[in-house]
Design a binder for these strands. Structure first.
Lengths: 228, 228
DNA sequence: CGGGACTGACTGAATGTTCAGTCTAGAAAT
DNA sequence: ATTTCTAGACTGAACATTCAGTCAGTCCCG
């Protein structure tokens, strides 16, 4: 019996389950080996199926990987929205927003795999299909910032900066810091990146931000220098 | 161990010329096709030689590509230094610094190929050799900002912010904006990114920056820019 | 001549994709 | 209730292609 988890066997959702498994496995492999070095055999092996089945579900390798990217970005966005909705003030939401981008956090399904973003960007640079997904995603993400800021301003929390340029700058800053974190730069650990970013937000929106509050995990000590 | 280019000094220029050609061609192909899809046949074809010759000079494909990255970053850094040295005030230098990162500019050898950086980052994420080059490079680049700011402060141009966090933030912001430019995001064109960034610099260093001044970089650059 | 620059033809390994079936669960027929 | 049938999930074994790297040998210059 190939159905190991026994959950809803013979259920109509078996195909969807498989697709989900594969998408998830694809993301894991991509973040480990990198997009370019991801083989369908890797993905198949991780689930314990034959490579042929992967092609059975996704017509081609490229389609699987492209869908994996789309899936990840949708998941990420949905999770972001969910978290925003849980919080009351604009300041709290912005804090969560920044934290989600920079602080390691065992998200369900979207473990802090910053390297994934690097690979996605590279794909977006040459694959028009991925490019449009990314563009759409970045737009939505900036829109979130704009509405957060606008709401905060109407509530009197923030000063009246122009929300749009602010959103562009904040998202760019987040991306830039995320790169350093992904690449494990020794001088930019997640926590200091987070604080730097929040200080920027506080400065520009005119609300006082104090470092102590959230402080969860500090930068995980990864002092291993690659020996040549 | 890591023997520098001490080999084959007997050949006058042929060998070095070839190496340079290949490195250059490699960079072009990488920025067009992407690092992962770069074949040694592409590089050979571009110069009009046989693929075997590429292997003749660089023992493996990986070595060629890794050296190409190193070569590009060195060239970029050297060009940056050269431009800094030409300018007098800290404000001017910072302006040039930002422009170099964001504005298209037909540099000799390093055409504004932002996509290259994306590919380099992806390589750095998994190849320790590339990673150390990148880390070194980012450090030097930040150091440039730090000394620029420090000098400007001593000259009374800038306010006294802490130069180091400023350099981290500025470089991150530049990277983030560069991504948008590389990916041709419709709302972040080079010029507006440049202005946004300079406004940030002006705000934080306390010097007035007016958008009009430099501009004019799109069309024909300085005529007496040295070739080769 | 001798050695470095260079090449065409080749190989070996990796890997995406195809294909001809196998197996199972359940529906339909008996 | 038993048998038959069907469709979809799944696989092992090939197939086809793509490339990095090898090799034996040619060309050319000093």
């Amino acid at each position: 019996m190939t159905d190991r988890d026994g959950q809803a066997p013979a259920a109509p959702g078996i195909a969807d389950q498989r697709r989900g498994q594969m998408l998830q496995a694809a993301l894991e492999v991509i973040s480990e080996r990198g997009f370019a070095d991801t083989r369908i055999a890797d993905i198949a092996e991780r689930i314990g199926i034959s490579p042929a089945l992967v092609i059975y579900y996704f017509k081609t390798k490229d389609q699987l990987l492209t869908e994996a990217i789309r899936h990840y970005e949708d998941t990420w966005y949905a999770e972001g929205q969910r978290r925003m909705d849980k919080l009351a003030t604009g300041a709290e939401r912005l804090e969560e927003f920044v934290a989600m981008n920079l602080l390691p956090d065992a998200d369900p399904g979207l473990e802090g795999n910053w390297k994934l973003w690097l690979d996605f960007w590279v794909q977006a640079a040459r694959n028009p299909d991925v490019a449009s997904v990314r563009e759409e995603f970045d737009k939505r993400w900036r829109d979130v910032v704009v509405s957060l800021v606008t709401e905060g301003q109407q509530a009197g929390e923030f000063t009246s900066v122009d929300p749009f340029p602010f959103s562009v700058a904040l998202c760019a800053l987040l991306d830039g810091l995320a790169i350093q974190i992904a690449l494990e730069d020794p001088v930019v650990d997640p926590m200091s990146a987070y604080e730097l970013c929040m200080r920027y937000v506080g400065d520009h929106l005119g609300f006082p931000w104090v470092p102590g509050r959230r402080a969860r995990r500090d930068g995980s000590p990864h002092p291993q220098e690659q020996e040549r």
